[in-house]
Design a protein around this nucleic acid. Sequence first.
DNA 1: AAGGTGACTTTTC
DNA 2: TGAAAAGCCACCT
Length: 120
Amino acid sequence: MVVRKRRLTFYEAAWELVRTIPPGSVVTYGQVAGWLGSPRAARAVGYAMFSVRDPDVPWQRVINHKGEISIGGHLHRPDLQRRLLEEEGVEFDAHGRVDLARFGWQPKRRQGLHKRRRLR
DNA sequence: AAGGTGACTTTTC
DNA sequence: TGAAAAGCCACCT
C-alpha cells in the first residue's frame, strides 16, 4: 500500500536529527540548521527545540555557538539543561561554557556548505 | 494571507 | 576584544 510520504516539517526533521546525537556530545543550532539544508535557520532550530514534546529527543545537547546554554530564564529550571549534560559527562568551564572543540559532535564532515553570500 | 515572534548567528564599529 | 544591531527561517495567529 502506498504510504503517502509527507515531507517532514523543519521542526520534525530537526528533532529526528537531534535524536541521533550521542550522549556526551553537543551540537549548535547553526550546525543543525546546516545539516537540514538551511545554514541560516539557526533561529528556527532553536524554536524547534522549544517545541519539543517527545522525551526521546535530547534537546539538551543543542546549545548556542558560544558553547553556552541559551535557554535564559525560561520557566522553572534554567540549569536543568546543564545538569543533564553534566550527567552525560559534558564539562563546563568557569564561565559555564562547553568546549565545542572537545564535545562538539560531527557526524561527518560538513564543511562544504554553501559559500556564505554577502548580505550587503 | 500577511505580519509577528524567537532556546540564533554573523557582521560592524 | 567586546558589545550592539541587523539578518534569516520556519511556524503560529
